[in-house]
Structure formats: C-alpha cells, structure tokens
Amino acid sequence: MRPSTGLLMTLMILSMLGGAVAHTVLIKRGEQAENLQILQGVVASLGLSDLALSTEARYTRHPAVSDPVVVSMDHPGAIDHFPSTFFWAPVARP
C-alpha cells in the first residue's frame, strides 16, 4: 500500500470516529435540552443566581453575587488558596 493511501485511510477512519463522537454529542445535547428546561424552572422558582459547581469558596460557589473584591481578600496580588480558582477567572466587575 502506498503511504499516501495509508494516510488517506487514517484520515477517513479518524473522520468516521469524529462522526461517531459528533452523533453521540448530538444525542446527548438533545437529552440535555429537556433537562435545561427543568433547570430553568428550578432557577426561576428558587431565585438562584449561580451554578452549584465548586463549593469550596464563596466566589466560586456564587461568583455572580459575591462581593466584587472577594477574590483579593488578603491582598490584591495574593495567589489564591483554592485549586478551583485556577479554573475560574476572577469575577468581572459589572
């Protein structure tokens, strides 16, 4: 087999895998869409303002409504103590 044929076949296999992943994602998103409506109802009825992802700090549990200066409680240049703040950007000033 020519190497270029091999490359072409590899690309084809990869795009087939990509198609399979995309298919699964679309199915998952379909299921998620229903759930999102339920979640909207929960937010509306409980008056929620944030996602319950990381409960380790006020500004990751409630970034939308915690104090604007909460991230720099110790010192504006201090490195945060929490690993999750490695993933979460500092809360934007409105």
Binding site: L7, T10, L11, L14, S15, L17, G18, V21, T24, V25, K28, L53, S54, T55, E56, A57, T60, F82, P83, S84, T85, F86, F87, W88
Partner: peptide, 30 residues
C-alpha cells in the same frame, strides 16, 4: 494528524469522561 487526534481525544475526554482531568481542578477541594 496530531491536531485531529488531539481534538478527538479532547471530545472523548469531555463528553465521555466528563472532563475527568479538569474536574479536580474546577471542583477544587469541594
């Protein structure tokens, strides 16, 4: 080839393994 492989792996990681590699980071010590 590297791009497609990496990108596919990323989708598998996020969709099938729920972003397992990043979960400890964005959930932190919760």
């Amino acid at each position: 080839l590297a791009f497609i492989s990496g990108y596919l792996l990323a989708w598998v990681h996020v969709v099938f393994w729920g972003g397992a590699l990043f979960r400890p980071i964005f959930l932190g010590w919760s």
